[in-house]
Amino acid sequence: MTYWSRRLLGALAVLFAVLALNFALFRLMPGDPVTSLVDPRFSPEAKEALSRAYGLDRPLGEQFLLYLKQTVTFDFGLSFVSGRPVWQELRDRLPHTVALSGSALVLAGTMGTALGVAAARRRGGAVERVVLAAGALSFSFPSFFLQLLLLLAFAVLWPLFPLRGSVSVPAPQGAAFIADYLHHLALPVLSLALLGFGSWALYVRNLMVKILGSEPLFLARAKGLPEPVLLWRHAFRTALPPLLTLILLSLPGLLSGAVITETVFSLHGVGRFLLESIQGQDYPAAGGAFYLLALVTVTSNVLADLAYGLADPRIRVDRRKGQ
């Protein structure tokens, strides 16, 4: 099997496992599955009809197949709370969550990489101390605490940014809407980036220290190459594939961060939807949101794997085996 087909199969396996887990979570919980999937406030006839729709009167195997079919077609049922299809609710919110996590990832990644490289280049310097401290803090600072502090500082005491929401009410039109949206997004993204860049910088630093001390870099230095060429063309290019792995590894955490961030800042997004669904015991909605978050993670894992393969010639090019 080639690298690619192996990775793809792995991703499919994870996806299937997520599906199975989701199925089991909401059906094997304590109590009657009917109450967990059908709103208890419905009339008996409505309950009947709904449990038939979910196949709750059929054997478990058949239920699973039905569930598979529904989930793969994004048919998560109706939300108990709004009565709208869960998928519509999610589709409205997904872009916001992606915008939040995506821009935080880009910002934290850029900051972390720049600082990590700088720290590795000047061992024992001020930048290195900053990186080490930021790294330790990013493993011990609860995201919501930092966010609450930022809110207190920049939304209450010194009101530069809005306290809550994704857009102002009422929302402005046209270009002003985009500006307003970004204004609301700024503090959440900044907080996620502040939390994320430390561990990123620490990782980059450790990786670069190792690479800068390795034999290829010794030879490159013997070649009389200028410092930037050594640093970026040789060292950083070598570090790139594992860095892409780091993206892969940081995505689940980032989504977890998004759930909390959306809650703290009252943003419109999948994470807060999940929380509200769980709190409101809106099980179809919670199941759909969880599945969607897991799906985003699995998809980005596949993409990161792909990027890793493309960045590392040892995987991309394998002529001797005739690929």
Binding site: E215, P216, L217, F218, L219, A220, R233, H234, R237, T238, L240, P241, A311, D312, P313, R314
Partner: peptide
């Protein structure tokens, strides 16, 4: 160890 002395990604 010239076996490992080249930068692997170039």
């Amino acid at each position: 160890g010239a076996m490992n002395a080249f930068t692997p990604v170039l």
